[in-house]
Computed example of a mutant assay.
Amino acid sequence: MAQIDYFFTPVSPFVYLAGDRLERLAERQGARIRYIPLDATALFPRTGGQVLAERHESRKAYRLQELARWSKRLGMKLDLQPMFFPVNPAPASYAIIAAEAAGGGDLGGLVRAFPRAVWAEGRNIAEDEVVKAILAENGFDPAVADRGMFMAADVYMRNLDEAVARGVFGLPFYIVGEERFWGQDRLDLLEEHLAGR
């Protein structure tokens, strides 16, 4: 069975726009997904990129146009100026890592729920109550966020190191074997690769 290593941050609008397409293509192609949350603000400077606040105005403007285009194309509500952004991704990332370790819920649903909360629901995913509510909404014990915090923090740091070592430079990023795919707009190419086309 092929494995898709999925590198992401729960605050990315492009992660949000990926929706459940990764999970659906993995099911069609008989692949499993390894979810790897990491800190994009630490990834970019280590791989030659810039955090959003430091990018040239032309890049910021283009990003907004792309978000609007993809939102329309995919039929997904997206607030270009969300109430809680930028927001600390660590609490949500820790919750995802702890939930995976604990088991018992819908991990893919949880991964999708955090960016949706930011970009479509106006929720602050850095707040403990919101994190616990989203865990519960996806079938996990909300207490895993507290119990697994130290383990999750360690994994989160190691995820960043792994991403840099494996050539990840933007998010979302998908790796199958030695093949790398950057961006939710490359999911069709990822599926073609898995299908051997």
Rank of each mutant, 00 (worst) to 15 (best):
D79F: 06
F14G: 04
V111S: 14
A102H: 06
A113P: 08
Y6C: 13
I96H: 06
V87T: 06
F169K: 04
V176T: 09
R69A: 12
A68D: 15
D161T: 12
Q3I: 08
D106I: 00
T9I: 04
L52D: 05
G108C: 02
I33V: 10
P82E: 03
F8L: 12
P142N: 06
G75H: 03
Q50R: 13
F84V: 14
G30E: 14
V15L: 05
A120N: 04
A113Q: 10
G49Q: 10
L80N: 12
P13V: 03
I97G: 05
V144D: 02
A163I: 00
R166W: 01
L160I: 00
P91W: 04
A40S: 14
T9A: 11
P115L: 09
A117M: 10
A98I: 02
A117C: 07
Q3P: 00
G177A: 02
P13C: 04
D154A: 13
D128I: 07
V130L: 07
G139I: 06
G48E: 11
G170Y: 01
A152C: 04
L135I: 02
R69F: 14
A145I: 00
F44P: 08
D185E: 15
P13M: 03
E129I: 00
Q3S: 13
N138A: 02
R112K: 13
D79A: 01
V118I: 10
A145S: 12
E137R: 03
S58C: 05
K72N: 05
P89T: 03
V131C: 10
R116L: 13
A95V: 01
Q50P: 04
W182M: 11
A126R: 03
A117F: 08
A126D: 08
A145N: 07
R197H: 08
G148A: 07
A133G: 09
F150R: 12
A113M: 06
A165T: 00
A90V: 11
N88D: 15
Q3E: 15
Y156M: 04
G122F: 00
L80V: 06
F114L: 09
E137T: 08
P45A: 11
V155T: 11
L43F: 05
L52R: 14
G105A: 03
V176H: 09
L74E: 01
V15C: 13
Y16T: 09
L171C: 10
A120Q: 07
F150Y: 11
H56Q: 13
R55W: 13
A126W: 06
I4V: 15
A98S: 12
A68L: 14
V11K: 00
P91Q: 05
G19I: 09
R197P: 09
N159D: 01
P89F: 02
G30D: 13
A90G: 09
